[in-house]
């Protein structure tokens, strides 16, 4: 018993470098060997709301996709961008991307390229999607999009004049969009879209954000100002799963190439790593508490 106590006390006083190694391994092994651990993903109500909101849009509707994340948060948010784009393209919805972070421009480019190069969707630039360039100003740009988009943007990222792009006809401000979807990892982000544009002009807004940001965004979700939220990697995995099932169900959809196979997204395979890491942390907490109890009792 004495020995067991000592072991628990030692475990509780574990050097943080050991914790780091164990966490590293718990993430690395499932990532390298995803087939070892396969846990089914259950969707939460917020992810389902996002899907239902986007799914209620009709072919030809216009969706503004705002990119506010960068290299550091790419692993968490990029799978959402890809899944949302897949969903929108599969319904023939017109997509307008706008980056509000300098790196957002590259992220939007990567996401579009990934979806277009899969050849799963019959989409063409300037007909089905257009990429607007980055402009500095954050909230000011949101405000500008809300009031007069043309005063801020005159051309797209390929320097094509907006007046020469067919799908830009009649798009002058936020009211000309049917939906705004925000992919955000900080400021400006979903809260700014609520405050400076969507609430005032009554345009529905949904968002995907990092897990850390969820507590900031959840009051807006609960009040309905943000319609559902994709929260971090689990949110991305859930949305990937819903879209994967949707695409398989609508295989004969006229917007999809029948010859190309539908592949599951990246976030789904990363969820095992996150599951094991979370479980390990809970184990650490239990050990920490046993050790804490034993040392306090000895004193």
């Amino acid at each position: 018993m004495e020995l067991l106590n000592k072991i628990f006390i030692k475990l509780g006083q574990l050097d943080r470098r050991f914790i780091f190694i164990l966490i590293g391994l718990s993430v690395l092994i499932p990532l390298l060997r995803p087939d070892w651990i396969n846990i089914p993903i259950k969707t939460t109500s917020n992810s389902r709301i996002v899907f239902e909101e986007l799914n209620s849009l009709k072919s030809g509707d216009k969706v503004l996709l705002s990119f506010e994340y960068g290299a550091s948060t790419k692993p968490e948010i990029h799978p959402m961008s890809v899944a949302v784009l897949q969903h929108l393209f599969s319904k023939g919805i017109k997509v307008y991307t706008v980056p509000l972070w300098p790196e957002g421009l590259m992220m939007a480019k990567f996401a579009i390229e990934e979806v277009v190069s899969s050849n799963l969707f019959k989409v063409k630039e300037h007909i089905d999607y257009v990429s607007l360039p980055y402009k500095a100003g954050g909230e000011i740009i949101i405000r500008g999009i809300a009031t007069d988009l043309r005063s801020i943007f005159t051309q797209d990222i390929n320097n094509t004049l907006l007046s020469e792009i067919p799908m830009m006809n009649g798009v002058n401000n936020i009211s000309d969009f049917d939906f705004v979807f925000d992919l955000s990892a900080g400021v400006p982000g979903n809260a700014e879209w609520v405050q400076f544009a969507c609430d005032e002009y009554n345009i529905p807004l949904s968002s995907g954000c990092t897990s850390i940001m969820v507590t900031d965004a959840i009051p807006y979700v609960e009040s309905g100002q943000i319609r559902g939220i994709l929260a971090g990697m689990p949110g991305a995995a859930e949305y990937e799963q819903i879209v994967f099932e949707y695409l398989n169900k609508n295989r004969n959809n006229k917007y999809l190439n029948e010859k190309v196979s539908i592949l599951p997204g990246k976030a789904t395979s990363r969820m095992s790593a996150q599951s094991i890491a979370h479980l390990l942390m809970v184990v650490f907490i239990i050990f920490g508490n046993i050790s804490y109890y034993l040392t306090r009792r000895d004193k």
Binding site: P40, S272, S275, H278, V282, I285
Partner: peptide
């Protein structure tokens, strides 16, 4: 904290 940690990931199901 423990419930959130376990509940947020598929292992919670």
């Amino acid at each position: 904290g423990v419930f959130l940690m376990i509940g947020r990931v598929p292992i919670g199901q």
